[in-house]
Amino acid sequence: MSNQPAYRFKIGLITATIWNNDGFYSVDLTRAYKTQEGDWRNTASFGHNDLLNLSKCAERAESWIAKQLAANS
């Protein structure tokens, strides 16, 4: 995998990071949260209120990857 993501986007507190490893794409989905000290962190644990944005991020990531694969074929 490259050190830089192929694409990254956010919807609300959810971030999708897409990685390209020689044409094989993988996606990391994370949720941002603030600690009691005021520092921002990320987690791969999601609550009920995150699920709609999580599903939208997954759908958008799938669409972006499909476009990349179609352009390269």
Rank of each mutant, 00 (worst) to 15 (best):
A32I: 00
Y25T: 01
E37D: 13
G12A: 15
F24N: 13
F46E: 02
F24Q: 15
L54H: 02
R60M: 02
A61M: 01
A70L: 07
K67I: 05
R60A: 11
L29M: 11
K34P: 02
K67E: 04
G12K: 09
G47R: 02
K34A: 09
D28V: 13
L13R: 06
D50T: 11
T35I: 07
T15W: 00
Q4N: 06
K34H: 03
G47I: 08
A58H: 06
E59L: 04
Q68H: 04
V27M: 12
A44D: 07
N21S: 12
W19S: 08
V27Y: 00
A16E: 04
A61T: 03
F24A: 11
I11Y: 01
S2K: 15
N53K: 06
A16M: 04
F24Y: 08
L51C: 09
T15Y: 04
W40N: 05
L54P: 01
D28G: 05
F9L: 12
L69G: 10
A66Q: 10
N53R: 04
K10D: 10
N21V: 02
Q4T: 08
F24W: 14
D22F: 07
K34L: 14
P5Y: 00
K56M: 06
R41A: 05
T43Y: 09
S26P: 05
N53C: 01
L13E: 15
Q4I: 02
S45G: 05
N53A: 11
G12R: 09
A44N: 07
N20A: 13
K10H: 13
I11W: 03
E62G: 15
D50K: 08
F9D: 14
K10P: 07
D22W: 07
L13A: 12
A58F: 04
N42D: 03
R60I: 10
V27Q: 09
I11N: 08
L54T: 09
L13V: 11
G23T: 03
W19E: 13
A16L: 02
W40Y: 05
S26G: 11
I18Q: 03
